Amino acid sequence: MTRVDTVSPAELVGTDFGPHEVLVETALLRLFTKVVGMNDPVHHDPAAAARAGLPGLLVPPTYLFGLERQHPEVPRIIDKLGIDIGSVLHGEQSFRYHAPCYSGDVLSFRPRFADYYEKKGGALRFLVRDCAVTRDGDPIAELRNVVVIR
């Protein structure tokens, strides 16, 4: 395997990953909602969603973070940073919704590195990634993810 020349996380602040479209697949969404214990049938039962007047299964807020990770630049950036994935911890995540989304939607994800900072003399490094999610150009959500690198 060829190793990419690594860069410091601070050099990537402002980097835009570019857009990436993802289809919200019904089977994967149903599996996710079952695993996390979502009991409302509009999340996993197409007939219940239809009775509620929805165009598909309702996507729960945290599901978008998993879809964002399908962006092809994510593994390339991790490689470029030279990060040992075993040293990465989940710091925090937040989201702001503008509109609901559903199974069958094609969503566009556009992540970018928003910030980088260190604590404890560099022993803990924090990488902040923001992501705009749209459907047909209309805003769906704004995601923020903070990872901690030990």
Rank of each mutant, 00 (worst) to 15 (best):
V42H: 03
V42N: 04
V42I: 15
V42Q: 04
H43M: 10
H43N: 11
H43C: 09
H44I: 03
H44M: 05
D45M: 01
A48T: 08
A48Q: 10
A49C: 07
A49Q: 04
A50M: 12
A50G: 10
A52K: 04
A52S: 07
G53Q: 12
G53R: 11
L54R: 02
L54H: 03
L54P: 00
L54Q: 00
P55M: 11
P55S: 10
P55W: 10
P55A: 10
P55F: 11
P55T: 09
G56M: 07
L57K: 01
L57E: 00
L57F: 00
L57V: 02
L58H: 00
L58E: 00
L58V: 01
V59F: 05
V59A: 06
P61M: 07
T62L: 14
T62K: 08
T62A: 14
Y63H: 07
Y63T: 02
L64K: 03
L64V: 04
F65W: 14
F65S: 07
F65P: 07
F65L: 15
G66T: 12
G66Q: 15
G66Y: 15
G66F: 14
G66M: 14
G66V: 11
G66S: 14
L67H: 03
L67V: 01
E68M: 15
R69N: 12
R69L: 15
R69A: 14
Q70L: 15
Q70Y: 13
Q70D: 08
H71V: 10
H71R: 12
P72Y: 14
E73N: 09
E73I: 08
E73V: 11
V74F: 14
V74M: 12
P75I: 01
P75Y: 00
P75S: 03
R76D: 06
I78W: 11
I78Y: 09
I78A: 11
K80Q: 14
L81W: 03
G82R: 05
G82H: 05
G82C: 06
